[in-house]
Nucleic acid binder design. Structure first.
Lengths: 202, 202
DNA sequence: GCGCGCGACTTGACAGTGTCAAGTACGCGC
DNA sequence: GCGCGTACTTGACACTGTCAAGTCGCGCGC
């Protein structure tokens, strides 16, 4: 049991994954780590701070996956599509983190500045890719903004619905490969969307 | 103070709207209604049951708005677009309800059967509109499913991001008209999307 | 007319939670 | 050797959801 701080973070994610964010309890986490109920509190100051740290780490993970997609080979269209796929994959593989990341009432992220910078880092990948794909000398800024919002909304909505289990059956195991049918659904949905979005190119 | 049951439901929504779903407390609700801490419990049996009831009512409200859009005049394309707009509008005008509706870990909806029927009622509006717009004798079922998922994901993602405040600045007042800039953002995003989706027509 | 049952509500208790306020053990520089 | 800060423990408080009783009042059968 090397680093209690890391252990606490891991146990928190595990707990959220198992029983949802409402069941996240510092005391239960402490119990799982085999320490007193105040030990986690010593490392994080408050439950909010712990959650904020998890959120920040989540956004760095997401940013890395998006940046990998961005720097892949292929046309801008292809890389934008890859980024969308990466977004959904991240949500499915890190359900616990994803569930927390977009819930401002859970932890005020102002406490953890890196959360803010990491989330804009992820966002700017999307902005760059959309500009590259749909930008042009005669394309107004407003239009690009709308296209960015459209792409983000689509992948975020798809990811959210999948994680919450509203779409098809959820594959419950954490970290496991998403099952075949959701895989196919994601692929076909992104396919339809990227084909549709292609018609917006200048 | 006529119907305590209704009063409790209203106070619950109010509380969620003010301080987020984590702050929903039966005891605080009871305090606001001026009754003992067990009075709400008598009407609902458990906190989960209360939330489930709110979810069910939320879905009926959403279904009604979607059905109104469905039975409006105009081309299928236009009505589909209106339904999307209705979805986002519902989320913005009933933030508290919307925040709860897609969170299965908050309340097991199996306790409240109407929640399930009402949610599929809303979903089937979307399915009908997509079939009407994109269906045809030579269009495979899989393709239609993908288009349904695409539409749902887009409006759900847009609504979620707006409600959570990730997109632009949130207009915090509950029930108030969404402010001008988010209004414009929604309009432009749906515009871009419905134009893009049009290219998928048979 | 009257008991009485039952629904609406209250009071009291218990385990669980986040958090504040102390106390304890221990390693390291001086 | 000694202080001191770091990592942690123990104990307490207010708060939560929920179980178990008790109280009040009203309508209905007899």
């Amino acid at each position: 049991m090397p680093d209690l701080r890391e252990q606490v973070l891991a146990a928190s994610l595990e707990l959220i994954e198992e029983q949802g964010v409402a069941a996240l309890s510092l005391r239960e986490v402490a119990r799982r780590a085999g320490v007193s109920h105040q030990a986690p509190y010593h490392h994080f100051g408050s439950k909010d701070a712990l959650v904020a740290e998890l959120v920040a780490r989540g956004f760095t993970g997401l940013s890395e996956m998006l940046e990998a997609a961005e720097s892949a080979r292929g046309t801008p269209t292809r890389r934008l599509r890859l980024a969308g796929r990466a977004y959904v994959d991240f949500a499915l593989r890190h359900r616990a983190a994803f569930r927390i990341m977009f819930r401002p009432e859970l932890a005020d992220l102002s406490a953890c500045p890196s959360a803010d910078t990491e989330s804009t880092r992820a966002y700017s990948v999307l902005v760059r890719l959309v500009e590259e794909t749909f930008g042009g000398p005669r394309v107004p800024r407003r239009r690009l903004e709308a296209i960015v919002t459209m792409h983000w909304s689509l992948v975020h909505g798809l990811a959210t619905l999948l994680v919450d289990g509203s779409l098809g059956e959820r594959s419950d195991e954490a970290g496991s490969t998403p099952d075949k049918s959701t895989e196919a659904l994601v692929e076909q949905t992104l396919d339809a969307f990227s084909r549709a979005a292609a018609s917006l190119a200048p």
